[in-house]
Structure formats: structure tokens, C-alpha cells
Amino acid sequence: MSTARSDGLAASINATLSDLLEQEPGLLLLGEDIGRLGGVFRVTRGLQERFGKERVRDTLLAESSIIGQAVGMAMSGLVPVCEIQFDGFSYPAVNQLVTQAARIGVRWNGQVSPSLVVRVPTGGGFRGVEHHSESNEALFARVPGISVACPSTGEDADQILRYAVTLGAPVVMYEPIRLYWRKAGPPRDPAPATSPTAARIARRGTDLTVVTYGAIIHEVLRAAHELSPDVDVEVVDLRWVAPLDMDTILRSLSRTGRLLIVHEGSRDLGVGAEIAASVVERDVGSLRGPVRRLAPDRRVYPPADFEQQYLIGVQEIKNEVLVMTG
């Protein structure tokens, strides 16, 4: 049975994968150096020693090959869990994910339901070099047949992984790099999500709803606590960007009347735009002001020395909230 985890994201994912390998004989891990080294971030450290090289497999340095193998394994009834070293390295695997993994169920008229999970370290804030700090979750979120998750706590990563390996369809799980080793953060509402794919209310409030996900939720929560009690901010942690839990967002909006969407991926044509459009289509009457988005401009992620000029910080979030509630 899944238990709540308060340790860092990396330790939680390692513990969950170990448990799944123990429980599910058909589950195996694939990725570059995930066995010998435990992966670039050591998330799978010790698993090859415990479960052997057949179940924790070091692969070629070729992302298309990793996903290609996994598609075949999944169609054969196995449950592959792949690791891509950084989200910027996922592009060579797009063809296998989009034209193969996402379409197999339809192509076989529902006779095949392959479970396939792709774990992807994501996001900036750790002084990575080119292709190491991107946030490209919107790329896969718009593809029919692919589900996309982005946990921000060890507890959520545990629940999402356990659900993903049973789904019978591909899941891409983005893991915020700067949360891998962070064991503490701003206080959160302890109430769990109502279902494996539901968003969760990380902070209750009455004046404005902030919808967010991934590592930046720490900055959002800090901003909310610093603004209190003058402005009472409710924070919704999406956990999944495909499917989007619009029901939780709309319930929150009905209480607050104002909506700000904050994410680390670029602003244009992103997750925030989809949420804003859905709110206007489904419940524009609840709005007491325009929906606003706070995200980086549409540009290439900069070198490490300039990444703080790209990322959204606590003060920017506070300023945006004050503009909306002033």
C-alpha cells in the first residue's frame, strides 16, 4: 500500500520504484547509466544491485532506442519505466512516443493496452547547461493518448507512479530537478488529492486562486504566505497537465473570483493558455477580473549565469497578485 512520503523527491521515487519492482515481476527500468551509476541524479541508485541487470537495464545513449525498446516490451505485456536524462534530451524520442506509443491502443482497436512510463528530470534553477533546464511538458500534453504528470512532493510522485504503471497507456512524468533533494518547503494543506489524477489544494484562501505545478509551487507558496493576511491566496497544485483537472480549478475560482496561472515553461501556447481558455468557456461568470498568466517569455533557456533573469521568482508572483487584488 502506498504511504505518504515527506522526504525529497529523488528518495521517494527510488523507494517507490524499489517497491514496484518487488511487487510486479513484469516491471523493469530502462535508461542511460541508471544501473551502474544510478542515473545522472542517482534516483535509481542501488536498484540494479538489488534486482539485477535484466530488470534495471543500462541502455545506449539514444533516447529513440530507449522508447523504441519500451514500446515493444509494453506490447509484449511488460511494464517498462524509462528514464530520459534531461527533458531537453526528449526530442529524439518524440517520434516513438507520439507516432507509436500514443497510438497503439487505437491502432489495435483496444486489443492492446500497453503500460509505459517515461520519467523526465525537468526545469531549471540548478545552473544546468544547454538542453538541461527546459520545461517542455506542453509539447507532450497536447498529444492525444499521452498523459503528463508533474509531481512536486514525494507523496504525489509515489501516488502518480503507482497509478501510471497500471494505466495501460503511456505516461510522461516530469520530475522537477531542484526538488530532488529538497526535503522541506513552505507549509501546505495536508489534505490529499481526491483521486490519482486530481489536482490538490496546497493552500486554502479566499481572495485569489493561483494554479501552478512543479518546482515553482515553492515560490508560489512562499509568496502566498508572505502576502498573508493582507491577501488570502488559494494555491492549486495541478499534479497533472494532461488530463487537466478543471473541476478543481473551477471550484476554487467559484470561491475566490480571481485566477492567476504560474508555470516555468514558456508563456506562449502553454499550459496556462489552455487553462485560461477553459475557464472562459466554462465559467466566465465567476471571474471578478481578467485571468492572468505569469511565465517566462518565449525564448531559449539562457546560460546558467542568467537563469535567474528567466525564472519566475517570489517577488514577481507577489507583484502580480497585488496588481490583481489591488
Rank of each mutant, 00 (worst) to 15 (best):
V314W: 06
P80W: 09
V233S: 10
D245R: 10
G128S: 03
V112Y: 05
T122L: 15
N136R: 08
A184P: 06
L221N: 04
L311M: 10
C150E: 02
L47K: 11
T194Y: 11
L250G: 00
D207C: 06
S278A: 15
R142C: 13
A304F: 14
D158Y: 09
P170F: 03
P229Y: 13
G110Q: 04
T325P: 11
L179E: 01
T212Y: 00
R119A: 09
M173G: 11
D58E: 14
V143T: 07
S152L: 07
G72K: 08
L260P: 12
L78W: 03
F89P: 00
A70N: 05
R107W: 07
R239F: 08
F89L: 01
R204Q: 07
L250M: 08
G38C: 15
L167Q: 09
G270Q: 02
A184E: 13
G46I: 10
E226A: 14
L20D: 03
D297G: 09
R119Q: 03
T212W: 07
L250K: 09
V106C: 02
V40S: 01
A277L: 14
L238N: 10
E130H: 12
P243T: 13
P25D: 02
P243N: 15
L269D: 15
R299S: 04
A70I: 00
G68R: 12
L179T: 05
R45C: 10
Q23W: 00
G185K: 04
T59Y: 00
L78E: 13
S12N: 06
D189H: 07
L227V: 06
E63K: 00
T194Q: 15
G105P: 03
I160Q: 12
R239C: 12
E281M: 06
V231H: 09
K183V: 11
P176H: 08
G26D: 13
R203S: 01
A10E: 08
F51R: 05
A4P: 04
V172A: 00
A215R: 05
V323R: 14
V94M: 15
G185N: 05
M324W: 12
P92R: 03
L29Y: 07
